[in-house]
């Protein structure tokens, strides 16, 4: 099940530092909970959990997270649209973005990365793989 992330996984940040802030957006409640769990296991904090693209965008603008985990197919705005909008806005352009999608073809991945995502994970993803991915993405951030 592990998505075999070939990125060196750094240690979880020291407890003294405030946890990195993660926004989770997926229209499936079960998946949001699963992603939230992985985010917590990766040593980060879920600061927002929403079910549609527009809400994700509004929340990201009001309270900029360090990382946004976005489902590609969501009502309102799709994950790709949210991704492009975040990149276009200077105040949110630096947010790390992880896209989740049920599409797994090369075209899907290419489209996701072209929209400005930092990483792309195809559903179904393993929890362990997601934890690795979140750690890898947040580790690249300046502390």
């Amino acid at each position: 099940m592990d998505e075999a992330v070939s990125v060196l996984v750094p240690p979880v940040p020291a407890p003294s530092a405030p946890p990195l802030r993660v926004l989770v957006a997926d229209d499936e409640e079960d998946i949001r909970a699963l992603v939230g769990l992985a985010v917590t296991r990766a040593g980060c904090a879920v600061t927002g959990s929403v079910a549609d693209g527009n809400a994700a965008l509004a929340l990201a603008r009001a309270d900029t997270p360090d990382l946004a985990v976005l489902d590609v197919s969501m009502p309102g705005a799709t994950g790709l649209e949210v991704c492009e909008a975040l990149r276009a806005d200077p105040s949110t352009a630096g947010v790390r973005i992880l896209l989740l999608s049920a599409g797994a073809s090369f075209e899907d991945v290419a489209r996701g990365l072209a929209a400005g995502a930092d990483a792309y994970l195809a559903k179904p993803f393993g929890v362990a793989g997601l934890v690795h991915q979140v750690r890898a993405l947040t580790a690249r951030l300046p502390a």
Binding site: M1, E28, P124
Partner: peptide
């Protein structure tokens, strides 16, 4: 795939 993600994840 979406329900399968939940099944396999949990």
């Amino acid at each position: 795939r979406t329900p399968l993600t939940s099944i396999l994840g949990y």
